[in-house]
Amino acid sequence: MPANDPHTHDHEHGSELSEMQLRVRALESILTDKGYVDPAALDQIVENVETKIGPHIGARVIARAWADPEFKRRLLADATAAVNSVAEFDPVGAHLIAVENTPQTHNVVVCTLCSCYPWPVLGLPPVWYKSAPYRSRTVIDPKGVLADFGVTLPSGTDIRIWDSTAETRFLVVPMRPVGTEGWSEEQLASLVTRDSMVGTGLPKSPKESQVEGAR
């Protein structure tokens, strides 16, 4: 990390870590003692985000869209309704919008004002999504940001940035990798990375997936 980056996590360790541990513990005890929060409910909230929600949810939705053109059509028309119509999918909140990558256009999602992110399908956002470099540069230098992720798009691809400035939330539908004809939804889901659903990555190719599986 550059020395001038205030969002490095390095300063979280050491002195800030113990300072924050103490301050958070104090506030939690104040709010608990005053009867405003139930510690068991707080533990449950943490458990939900640590064990229940995550990008595996979005990956199943994308795999279904790749495998089922009718589902994909409904997903692009109204993502909340489409996802919530499938009983085996985890429910998502209102105002989810799916945006489709095509050979012509690549989509990238950002929140320049805070860190809005489609939690119900992707889980909590990674640190880089909440960082000043990502929030500042994506709207003015998206190709530079993609290069930071090692992503180079074929020349002639247009880039579309979605700044999440309201309660609408965006899920990128990446292009289905070639060489996956006849794959099951489960196999397809294994190719869908978190970053590919934000637009800062591409899905794994069958070959990449195979190499990883062999490790």
């Binding site: 001038n4 470099p133 500042s136």
Partner: peptide, 16 residues
Amino acid sequence: VHDMGGMHGFGSVEPE
């Protein structure tokens, strides 16, 4: 400063 879109100087994005 929360309104960061287009600002320079924060460095590169570093995925973990």
